[in-house]
Design a protein around this nucleic acid. Sequence first.
DNA 1: ATTTATTTTTAGATATATCTAATTTTATTT
DNA 2: AAATAAAATTAGATATATCTAAAAATAAAT
Lengths: 220, 220
Amino acid sequence: MELTTAEENYLKAIYHLSEEGKKSVSTNDIATAIQTKPASVSDMLRKLGEKEVIQYRKYYGLQITELGKRLALQTIRKHRLWEVFLVDKLHFAWDEVHEVAEQLEHIQSPLLIERLDAYLNYPKFDPHGDPIPDEYGDVRSRPRIALNEMNIDQGGQIVAVKDSSAAFLRYLDKVGAYIGARIKVLDKVEFDGSVEILVDQKKTLFMSKDVASNILVLQS
Amino acid sequence: MELTTAEENYLKAIYHLSEEGKKSVSTNDIATAIQTKPASVSDMLRKLGEKEVIQYRKYYGLQITELGKRLALQTIRKHRLWEVFLVDKLHFAWDEVHEVAEQLEHIQSPLLIERLDAYLNYPKFDPHGDPIPDEYGDVRSRPRIALNEMNIDQGGQIVAVKDSSAAFLRYLDKVGAYIGARIKVLDKVEFDGSVEILVDQKKTLFMSKDVASNILVLQS
DNA sequence: ATTTATTTTTAGATATATCTAATTTTATTT
DNA sequence: AAATAAAATTAGATATATCTAAAAATAAAT
Ligand SMILES: [Mn+2]
Ligand SMILES: [Mn+2]
Ligand SMILES: [Mn+2]
Ligand SMILES: [Mn+2]
């Protein structure tokens, strides 16, 4: 069972939406995620249904199948391994890797991925803190909490970001929030949900609720 | 000016055929090289003509333009850099790299190639001894002679192979002929053009004219 | 100089992936 | 419950890339 590049992109989007969104995934959601038109999505859903990577009933949502999950996780694995390569070996910034990994994830060669994984020393997380599935699609996920949901005086370590857009990542670079940083919540503003945190026991940072909600913390 | 993957593959084939074949490149030659049908080639030639990477007159051959050469060399540069990466870093055998490089060469990212080149320490030749064009398309070519055209007692160093097929490369591995090996012609058989050579001053090897003609030597 | 053979191009299909506009189905209001 | 709004699908185009079969142009042979 081989998928085209377009099919892999759709399936990956469907997998991500299924994971987070809980309830059923809508045609419009997919169209938004993948920057295309709903008409194109309908067409593709029919094809993905025929290939049995989703279960699809017209007008009623869809459900990703076990086969679909396995294939999506394979593509995600490739995407994240390439991101590690770009950052660790080619010294890309973490906001520069996404577009390129979006292309590299479609290269077909099991040997390549096996070797790349070994070369990178079997990394468990990508530069944005997202877990890298193993070759069987198993994901070791850590219990993470959004920074805006922590209470005053609670501490932890930044382990991932929800938003991987270049704009957001560059903002984090600028204010000095990075993956691995140890943080503690100093204050929370009831009114707008913004927070004040202490980074690495030396620097205080104010951030809006919007920003904080996109930072994931492993509590200690 | 951006080319599709298919256009890049055609242009690369046309460039290679133009270089070696001397005279004009035929539709059938391209079809053979690229494993497609002449009808498909005709169609593509029209498109490549419109994009001005070749000069095309129906029924009379074609000529690659300066623009076309520049773009072809860019793709060739990418292909060969990836081959070096696969062999040097991921420990692929030299007969395993071609298919994968054929895909990787189409990844669009100037930064990626720039960084990859630096990471590999600006290699000048790929694993098959072929020169890697610089970012401006300049190729430093060495004067090379086919092994079957050398005379008895002449010596040199194997620097490249003409045929990069897995079958041929594995044969060379098996008999112990590799790029970098120092060789000397011990004997030539008039009748069938086969040769006997001394490798690294210790091992003698017999090879047919067909094999010898695909081994390129830098004479000393 | 015709005839024949070869090469190349065109015509017409098929497959993928996308779009706009129209239609259909489901969901929400009144 | 009927009317209206929203979401999803289908119809019909366009663009790329490929194929087979037919036609046209060039090259080779008699
Ligand atoms: Mn992608
Ligand atoms: Mn990532
Ligand atoms: Mn290619
Ligand atoms: Mn090569």
